[in-house]
């Protein structure tokens, strides 16, 4: 289990928002926050409408970690980016830096009084005793310690949302893309979503494999 990753298959996501609801219920996420969000591109345009479910991407070079003034972010051995709510001062810098809007505040108020930041934990709890009440109240369920995957992915009705070890999830997705007569060379991740010049790299990759011409 090197790196835990989410992967959402845009060809399968039907914008049911089941993952959002499941996450809110399982982790008892505070009011006004959705740790997971479903975006629909070109809503209603036949043949072009695509949906994606996105939460924290658990980046290996996380911007939230780089800007946090109190250094409260850390990465677990499984590559999950977590934060310590005891240290968090609620300044909001992580939410400015995050490309995916993953860190959010429980409520907004005057004088920047917004409580502690809340984010997707990959259902891995936080820095409290595993399975304890304190961990549940602060961070939500620790399903990883129970040998389970994040609930959003496990209950996804179309299996658009996959979670787990990056290599194995990529294999599942590649198998699907091959069945769709592609080559699966490019799967979602930091480079596709946020990297620089990813478009050129994708085009080059597509041209080399010849898969795009089919």
């Amino acid at each position: 289990m090197a790196r835990m990753k989410f992967l959402c298959d845009a060809e399968r996501c039907i914008e049911c928002n089941g993952c959002v609801t499941a996450c809110k219920n399982e982790n008892e996420v505070p009011w006004g926050i959705s740790r997971r969000r479903v975006v629909t591109i070109a809503d209603g345009v036949i043949g072009k409408e695509k949906s994606l479910s996105v939460a924290c991407m658990h980046c290996s070079d996380a911007p939230c970690m780089a800007v946090c003034p109190v250094d409260c972010f850390y990465r677990t051995e499984e590559g999950v980016v977590l934060h310590d709510k005891d240290l968090c001062i609620g300044c909001g810098y992580c939410s400015y830096a995050c490309p995916f809007g993953a860190p959010q505040f429980p409520q907004e108020g005057a004088f920047g009084q917004r409580g502690k930041m809340d984010k997707c934990t990959f259902c891995a709890g936080g820095p409290e005793e595993d399975g304890s009440q304190a961990e549940f109240e602060k961070y939500g369920r620790n399903r990883l310690a129970e040998g389970k995957l994040p609930l959003c992915a496990e209950m996804c009705s179309t299996k658009a949302l996959l979670a787990g070890d990056a290599a194995e999830v990529a294999n599942i997705f590649r198998e699907r893309v091959v069945r769709r007569s592609g080559n699966g060379a490019d799967i979602s991740g930091w480079n596709t979503a946020y990297g620089k010049g990813s478009l050129e790299a994708d085009m080059k990759k597509g041209a080399e494999s010849g898969g795009g011409a089919k």
């Binding site: 970690m65 850390y74 677990t76 977590l82 820095p127 990883l144 310690a145 129970e146």
Partner: peptide
């Protein structure tokens, strides 16, 4: 450099237990 490369063991904050150190495993 802009982005922090997280190094295991370098984080000084509160320790988190590993998932397989849980009651179930």
């Amino acid at each position: 450099p802009q982005v922090i490369k997280y190094e295991a063991g370098k984080y000084q904050g509160k320790r988190d237990t590993l998932p397989w150190d849980s009651a179930a495993y």
